[in-house]
């Protein structure tokens, strides 16, 4: 146990610094004027997914080893459900908003803002 402690310590420390770096980059991306608005959205999404991956590998110790095969399979299924729930909901509701055209021509999504 003691022999592996320094390397484990190193794994957590590397994870902390990479996560702090990605967090700082996320806050910079949200406030910068260098990117177009779509680029800010895209950059934030990529940085968040990268940071979630860093947390999984360095803090939760998800690896390609035989001990975590089941965990990786369960994680893959969980990610599938998360994507289906979020993307499916946004797709369906955006579609319904687009179809809710009022007789006057004003779309429902405009009315919902007021």
């Amino acid at each position: 146990m003691d022999a592996s402690a320094p390397s484990e310590f190193l794994v957590y420390t590397i994870g902390l610094f990479v996560a702090l770096l990605l967090t700082a980059t996320s806050f910079w991306t949200a406030n910068t004027t260098l990117l177009w608005s779509g680029g800010v959205f895209l950059g934030l999404a990529v940085l968040a997914i990268a940071q979630m991956g860093i947390h999984l590998v360095f803090f939760l110790h998800i690896s390609s080893g035989p001990e975590s095969t089941n965990n990786v399979l369960a994680l893959a299924f969980g990610v599938l459900i998360v994507v289906v729930v979020i993307a499916g909901t946004m797709w369906i509701v955006a579609d319904m908003n687009a179809n809710m055209m009022m007789p006057s021509g004003a779309p429902m999504s405009m009315r919902m803002q007021h």
């Binding site: 949200a30 608005s37 959205f41 934030l44 947390h55």
Partner: peptide, 25 residues
Amino acid sequence: SLFWHALDIVWVGVFTVVYLMGVSS
């Protein structure tokens, strides 16, 4: 410890989607 690390992963989603995207849009 698994629970606490998982909460941090959820918070990454929260601060990105709610706060940073909310402020920049």
